[in-house]
Every structure is written in structure tokens, then in C-alpha cells.
Design a protein around this nucleic acid. Structure first.
Length: 197
DNA sequence: CGCCTTTGACCCGCGC
DNA sequence: GCGCGGGTCAAAGGCG
């Protein structure tokens, strides 16, 4: 299931596929620290997609633990894979998959200002996708939130942005982070809203 | 000088 | 065991 969101700064609508999170537990604020979010009605609009490849992994990882700090090194165990995360490594990466959220945004721009400061640390060409995948880390002190940005392999007009982890700080620009919460019906409520759909 | 991007190398899990 | 693919590291260079 998809949900549409708008961000005038991206000048495009966004189709959000929720990855690996029980709908009943998901809160956007767990991924993006929001300031002054007065109306949580929008959160109810978020929905879960079970189609993602990470779903199975997530179901077997620490989804039942809710969404803690992705940077934590506490031990996490599950029934199937017996994932234990004491140090940085692949096993922890698996656990982090459950804390990811993917935005599918129609945009000509791959770099979209979401209010946080990101530092690029990798670039990789992925199979079945002629467009490279870019890897970013949050530049915030002690914050290890990561995001992957790539063009949709099926439609290069769309950009897939996957956030992994939870910010341990507030964004310097709270305005932007509230954008994903806005339903498309609210576009006209935004200042200088433009819609290129 | 500090921070950033670039990019090849490396590591690891997974499938065969 | 081996090769492949995805993710990360780290050195080098650019830029303000």
C-alpha cells in the first residue's frame, strides 16, 4: 500500500512504502525527530507495505522491540537467526533493517534537503539498476543514522530514499522534517507550495 | 584547516 | 569452497 505525501521544497509528491514495521507500531517521529508536531492525525495515514525484501528479515529481527536507537550496541536476539549485536557488523546491520523507512519520491533531484546534514560515504552500482546507489551518514555528532539514495530501477523519475536508524538530535531545520507528514491534500496549506505532478 | 566528495578496496553474507 | 552482490572504509583530492 502506498501513501502520498507532499513537500514543496522537493517540488514533487512522494509515494511512501513502509518497510519492515508493524503498522500499529510505526511512527514517523521515530525516524525523523520532529518539532512541534501538533497534529498526529497524519501519522494515522501512514501505512505498511509488506512487499519489501527486508520484511522477512525485519520480522525475524528486533521488530518486537520497537524502535530503539540504531546506534546502540545492546544485544539483540531473535528466534530465527539468533542475531546478536555487540559490535558493529553485518549482524547488526540486519537488525537495523527493521528500523528503516523508504520514501519513493518523484523528483529530478536526488539530493533533497530533509533538514539534516548528511555526509556521503559511499557509492555503489547495484544489480538490475543502471543508476548508482549513494550512501550517506548523518553528520550530527554521535548520530549514526544512514540513508541510501537511488533511482527507482523501474522508473528513473522516482528517487528511493531509505533512512536507517533514529536521529539522536533535532534537525537544524524543523520545517523540512515536518513535510513528510503532510498529506497531499495539505499542499495548498504550505507556503510557496508547488506541485509538479 | 576542516569538511566534503570520490572511488577503489575490502569485508561479509548468501546462494550455488 | 567460490563467486557475487551489498555495504562500509579510508585515502586522496577539492573547495570554501
Amino acid at each position: 500500500m502506498e501513501q502520498y505525501f507532499g513537500n514543496p521544497n522537493f517540488c514533487h509528491s512522494a509515494v511512501v512504502n513502509m518497510a519492515a514495521s508493524p503498522a500499529s507500531e510505526f511512527k514517523i517521529s521515530d525516524y525523523l525527530i520532529l518539532e512541534d508536531v501538533a497534529d498526529y492525525h497524519h501519522e494515522e495515514c501512514w501505512s505498511l507495505s509488506t512487499e519489501t525484501e527486508s520484511s522477512e528479515k525485519a520480522n525475524s529481527s528486533d521488530a518486537s522491540h520497537g524502535f530503539g536507537d540504531a546506534t546502540s550496541t545492546t544485544t539483540t536476539t531473535n528466534n530465527n537467526n539468533n542475531i546478536k549485536c555487540k559490535n558493529k557488523g553485518i549482524k547488526q546491520k540486519k537488525a537495523e533493517v527493521s528500523q528503516s523507512i523508504t520514501f519513493r519520491t518523484r523528483s529530478q533531484l536526488e539530493i533533497m534537503d530533509d533538514g539534516y546534514k548528511w555526509r556521503k560515504y559511499g557509492k555503489k552500482t547495484v544489480k538490475n539498476n543502471s543508476n548508482p546507489r549513494n550512501y550517506y551518514k548523518c553528520s550530527g555528532a554521535g548520530c549514526s543514522v544512514k540513508k541510501r539514495v537511488e533511482r527507482d530501477r523501474n522508473d528513473s523519475n522516482y528517487v528511493l530514499t531509505t533512512y536507517v536508524g533514529v536521529h539522536n538530535h533535532h534537525t537544524p531545520s524543523s520545517y523540512y522534517t515536518q513535510m513528510p507528514l503532510l498529506h497531499s491534500d495539505d499542499w495548498n496549506l504550505l507556503p510557496s507550495a508547488t506541485q509538479n505532478s
